[in-house]
Amino acid sequence: MNVVLTALVTSLAILVGVLTVTAWGIWFERKFSARLQSRLGPTMVGPVGLAQPLADLMKLLQKEDLVPEAADRAVFNLAPQIAALCALGAAAVVPFSAHIIGAQIDLGVLYLLAIGAVTVMPVFMAGWASNNKFALLGGMRALAQSLSYEVPLVLSAMVPVILAGSMDVSKIVEYQAAGSWIAIGPVWLGLPAFVLFLLAMLAESNRIPFDIPEAESELVAGITTEYSGMKFALFYLGEYVHTLVASAVASALFLGGWDGPFAPGLHWMVLKSLALFTFVYWVRWSLLRFRSDQLMKMCWYWLVPISVALLLGAGAWVVL
């Protein structure tokens, strides 16, 4: 009983925590991008616009729930829910501190990669079910793109796994806490693997320069063209949660997770994740977009060979 209760409370706390951080992550992004563009960003709702996420939520809740007549209703309605679920589900195995973790499973990294790969499904479902040509093109691009970035993502995530000798995310963080962060040492393989992981992460969470499935200047709104109200909000939420969780995963795998001096582990984990989150948005608001064939070319010509080499290098380091 006690175990179940603890698990329930922990997972609820993580869920609420992730959603809250995401909501104000959106506020932060809007403020941040506004300062980049010499604008003010949200100012009207609450002090410095802090209540803007709540206002957005209220607005989206009040919207009419539109389903296009020719759409595949069941799939159309299911897609945003899966998108949000997948993104939140990934948070389960991320160790936010030595003790705050939703589920400590031995194959944590595998689970993360699998659930990350599944997030392409709702995107394609939405693209197909909307019965809209722009959405279809977006879904098609998402599939084509996922084939190319998943390989370097998985291979680069394997580098810390091999070095730490475990697929458990907590074990990997403990290994880093005992030695040094994988992005820094002890081998020079960590840093390039970290960079590759970041690039593939940008592609997986559909962020500029790889936001090709959405591409609002080309495909109107890509897969979300026909979505409105809460269904759109779920897609939107899923995207941001995905980015946030991916930042947390990257900091756990490469930047030592909750390991850090002076402050409790949770502080360090949140700090590192938010730093990566900010980095993602800094990139988003500064760069232009690649073309999808250019992304695939980059992945297959550069990222895959490099990540294979890194994997071999990591294996050689452990064996020798």
Partner: peptide
């Protein structure tokens, strides 16, 4: 057109 309204393109645009 190259970078989208939510991204680096709009930064150039507003500047």
């Amino acid at each position: 057109d190259l970078g989208g309204a939510l991204g680096g393109g709009s930064t150039v645009f507003i500047h």
